[in-house]
Write a protein that binds this DNA or RNA. Sequence first.
DNA 1: CTCGAATCGGGTAATTTGGGTT
DNA 2: CATGTCCAAATTACCCGATTCG
Lengths: 70, 70
Amino acid sequence: MHANATEEDVLLTPSEVAAMFRVDPKTVTRWAKAGKLSAIRTLGGHRRYKESEVRELLGGFIPAPREAAE
Amino acid sequence: MHANATEEDVLLTPSEVAAMFRVDPKTVTRWAKAGKLSAIRTLGGHRRYKESEVRELLGGFIPAPREAAE
DNA sequence: CTCGAATCGGGTAATTTGGGTT
DNA sequence: CATGTCCAAATTACCCGATTCG
């Protein structure tokens, strides 16, 4: 089992995911829209992404210790 | 679904709910004000949220075992 | 009664969303 | 087709002092 839908996990903000991939937050949103990345929605409509899923998509590579979305 | 109103239900603090959604405790308060989330009021005016309701809003997502407010 | 942490309130920046365009 | 940018509107995050919780 990798990243199941009902698995325990930590949520990341769009900025944080974008910083890890070195892309624009908008791009991360497109990935979520395309179903390439599962997203949890806040009650206001903002998206939160699972850290474990992002890690897998990164191919096990952990980006430099950069604090995004501070 | 077993989410009765007057049923035995664990109450969560704003910090705990905020940690589950990866948002600010203030944001959870806004959700309660907007009627998106029902809140129980303490005698001092502080809000408490039903765990069962929060879980449903999370859409089956189970946050990592994190103790937010202890 | 005292104390540290948390949660009130409001007010103001920063982020996110969505569509359309390049 | 994927990504980056511009725009307006909506949502969220951080600031303060005062009050409540445990």
